[in-house]
Design a protein around this nucleic acid. Sequence first.
DNA 1: GTCTATATCAAGATAGAC
DNA 2: GTCTATCTTGATATAGAC
Lengths: 205, 205
Amino acid sequence: MTRVSFKAQMLRAREDAIVAAVNRLLAERGFDAMTVDAVAAEVGIAKASLYKHFESKEALAGAAMIGAVDRALVEIERLAHDPEHGTDFERLKALTRWAMREQLAGEMPSLPSQTSALRAALSANKAFVERLMQLSDLLGAWIGAAQRARQLDAKLPSEVVLYTLYARACDPAVALLKSGGNYDDEQIVELLLQACFGGIAARGA
Amino acid sequence: MTRVSFKAQMLRAREDAIVAAVNRLLAERGFDAMTVDAVAAEVGIAKASLYKHFESKEALAGAAMIGAVDRALVEIERLAHDPEHGTDFERLKALTRWAMREQLAGEMPSLPSQTSALRAALSANKAFVERLMQLSDLLGAWIGAAQRARQLDAKLPSEVVLYTLYARACDPAVALLKSGGNYDDEQIVELLLQACFGGIAARGA
DNA sequence: GTCTATATCAAGATAGAC
DNA sequence: GTCTATCTTGATATAGAC
């Protein structure tokens, strides 16, 4: 009864391939510079066929953004049960590390900068907004716990920490350091993680 | 002999007005979403006239980006002689504060995200590259001095600190906090400055 | 150097056959 | 649901008169 028809499986696989292509192009070029022709070419189907699956460029991007948030939610779930990360503070750090690695791998679609045409469309996308709120709630809980445990700075409002972490997931400093060519991916991640959590000012004394 | 003709003054004023409009639109919408029509409308002249002053959209943006770097250089010069900021560490902090205020005022054109069509054009713009190197050299000197004075974390490579500060000048966290509506502009600046220099992890103990 | 009018082209979206 | 061919729009850039 729960068996899924072969046709439906094919449909699903095709749409997954489309979303994956959009995700990559979104990470590589951003929404404005991504063309629907490029998506079609990457998937290997005609542009008109794309529009049978998604009704607009905004819908394509929306599906990819939902996928990105979902991957973050999956990673959160994984970290919550990973004995290697014993505190919420460590889990927040591990999640930020994961986000930076995704960015370096070209799999993190950059957040729509304040102004992008995408922003309005995403605000109207209920599935996206709902998942983003879920993500924010989970992170907010971790942040609050880590502040009470005195591992995160309790003087910073939780909102400031949350937005700071969101911003680090698309930090241009990652690409700048990468193009500098002096550090490999893992070094970039650890250096920026240190700058984010520890700050650039000296500690101690 | 050094007198400048009235006509040349008018020309200069007109071009300054154009660059100012481009700067604002670049800050508000970014390069891709900025149209030459919008620039013309904002300045109040015909689009064809714009092209008598600048040969392309990229040239327009280049002029605005050069202007932004120049404003930073002027601010650096001012800070270097301001007795209120006695150390290079304090000057770096003050410059970052200035950049965040510019961003909130809508006067900081966002850095071309890794992929923008603008990036290639800027790399080929000698005047821009030259000024950006000048800026980087000045900041690099301040960073090195602040690290030797043990006020900036000496374990972070100077390059990491430099790129981190560049990234904070267009930090999306600024706009996120602004749209959150819980803090006024000055509070946003001070909170993010604290997160950047002090880090989000707890200090002490 | 400024204007109006237009050329040109890229890109989002659709028609209609299979 | 996939294709080829086409429509339509919006945006960069230019022609040509004044």
